[in-house]
Design a protein around this nucleic acid. Sequence first.
DNA 1: GCTTGACCTAGAGCTAACTCTAAATTCTAT
DNA 2: ATAGAATTTAGAGTTAGCTCTAGGTCAAGC
Lengths: 161, 161
Amino acid sequence: MTYSIGQVADRLDISPYTLRYYDKEGLLPFVDRNAAGRRRFKDNDFNFLEVIVCLKEAGVPVKQIGNFIDLCMTGDATLQDRYDFLAEHEANLEQKMARLQHTLDFLRWKKWYYKTALQAGTERIHYLPGTNQVDPAVHAEFEQLVADGASPKALGELSFK
Amino acid sequence: MTYSIGQVADRLDISPYTLRYYDKEGLLPFVDRNAAGRRRFKDNDFNFLEVIVCLKEAGVPVKQIGNFIDLCMTGDATLQDRYDFLAEHEANLEQKMARLQHTLDFLRWKKWYYKTALQAGTERIHYLPGTNQVDPAVHAEFEQLVADGASPKALGELSFK
DNA sequence: GCTTGACCTAGAGCTAACTCTAAATTCTAT
DNA sequence: ATAGAATTTAGAGTTAGCTCTAGGTCAAGC
């Protein structure tokens, strides 16, 4: 069974343009061509494509993905390199997710900030008296609620009175 | 207390070029200037800067961050819009983190794939007999180990024999 | 007073990752 | 058999987000 570039594009939810671009960049050396020069993807090719999509999602630049594919085409001598490559990007991704968790926490605290302002009808409730500067104690108040067991996500929900 | 662009750049680990670019894009309308036209950041400005950095990390495009800052400068009439903006990007970020978790899971299964190949000395142990195609049962085997309680992260570690 | 470094603007340049165009060919369905 | 859709290539164009250059001003230390 083989698949045209359009069929693969549909299945992976990627445009044919993008697939050809990846091919040009050396990411698809495993793809066969028919007599007329058209790409014929095999079932096994999806194993590679899955890896490419995964590494893209992990934020690995196209060129580096190309390096990895090169290792794959070289054979058993590169097994350790391929393992190391994946281990490195696993670590990178773990760090990125930890950063994003902090970002999400921050977003939730700001949501709570606006929820409480909204309920008061004005942002001034968060300002130091007589100024337009945010009172640092406001953040501390939020942190205290969390420390007392409240869910940061629920605290910011408007339905949560 | 005020701060120069260089001091702010150091503190946020962002280049002064980037800060000026953000200013040009309308992200820093709150920054004062001294008599000579140099930017003087106030302590309260860091509240805005924190939000900008957070939204950037969350993947919000610079233009949209500018829209949010505009809302902030407008006053209490936009409190609901600001809340909605943050709620939308909270949801986006939650989805993104869920996708990244799947990506991380995939990366770990592939690491296990290479760990086991490495221990066998060849990738052929994962192929269907007499072919160069990966046996789909290999992934199923990994999934079974996870279902039986193994940690996906630990399964891929080389020290885990 | 002078030098060194930080800052200013306008605008050019850069990179990554697409995204599309043009002109030609091939495949598919009637 | 033929119309229309899909595919091919080379190469141009686009966008976001910086990043830097040039030419000038300003501020702090010796």
